[in-house]
Design a protein around this nucleic acid. Sequence first.
DNA 1: GATGAAATTAAATTAAG
DNA 2: CTTAATTTAATTTCATC
Lengths: 165, 165
Amino acid sequence: MAQNNLPKGRPLDELDVQILQLLQRNARLTNREIALQLGLSVTPTYERIRRLERLGYIQGYVALLDPRRIGQALTVMATIRLKEHSREYLEQFVEQVQKLPEVMECYYVAGDFDYILKVAVSDMDAYQQFLVKKLAGLENIGQVQSHFIMMDIKKSTAYPLDALL
Amino acid sequence: MAQNNLPKGRPLDELDVQILQLLQRNARLTNREIALQLGLSVTPTYERIRRLERLGYIQGYVALLDPRRIGQALTVMATIRLKEHSREYLEQFVEQVQKLPEVMECYYVAGDFDYILKVAVSDMDAYQQFLVKKLAGLENIGQVQSHFIMMDIKKSTAYPLDALL
DNA sequence: GATGAAATTAAATTAAG
DNA sequence: CTTAATTTAATTTCATC
């Protein structure tokens, strides 16, 4: 009998983690290439990947674009404080911010402000428009602080999985 | 002469932008599926995608993982102020921070602090360790403020390309 | 020159042992 | 798990507009 069949609730084994590490960096590796690196054959590799997808470890596959090439050269981290923190206001804010295409990420955080937004726009002018016409237009917005990104020091979508090995 | 061959410096045409939008959301669409949505046949679709890759519009393809499933349930946005801003110190900080696997993103920003880091760890204890043993150990660190993410309101790797259409 | 149909090659997926 | 068969997609070729 096999002892490498991964039951639903169990932690991942080393081969699974290796697969995740590889696919986090390059999702276009073929099953054959991945199998080679794992020292497995193609079929078990293929089945492990499908299981990782099915169980939700892998949420999806995306293409990453170069923001400068597509005219989204300016990224801004905006911190927001709301005026009031009633449930109703919080839900309203969430709903509205999800609709704004310029907002790529939005996190509700603990600390001296309520939300952190990552906003992608073409230039300072577009950000100004975003701020005045969209963000400031939302109800219940208190202070907004804008932090313009001057340089990307590190930018990765890959989680560190070393701890799992 | 052709006017749909995309020279290096020229802006993208509408079909290119549509391709980028589709692949930003789902990189596993087949050429056939993309072609169908564009109203093209497979060959020109295929060639456009390869050109977008070659010219650097598409930087790569990655799998996105569910952080909770892989035991990276805690994400922290840390803002950092350095003590000194000499060229030497800045370069040293950059070099060291790039080596830390917990740091998924690091931006040099304008404003009342110098860097924003996105740090992924398993739990509060691991963050504590990271802070004390790694971040605080770097030379030249001034104040660090940690903002613990309570909820992901929106989280996307897709840039808004509506402006290009 | 770009296009789409068809041929080829390679990969994904399934089936059998 | 492995190997082999099958299906599907990627890639190339080519005749055509």
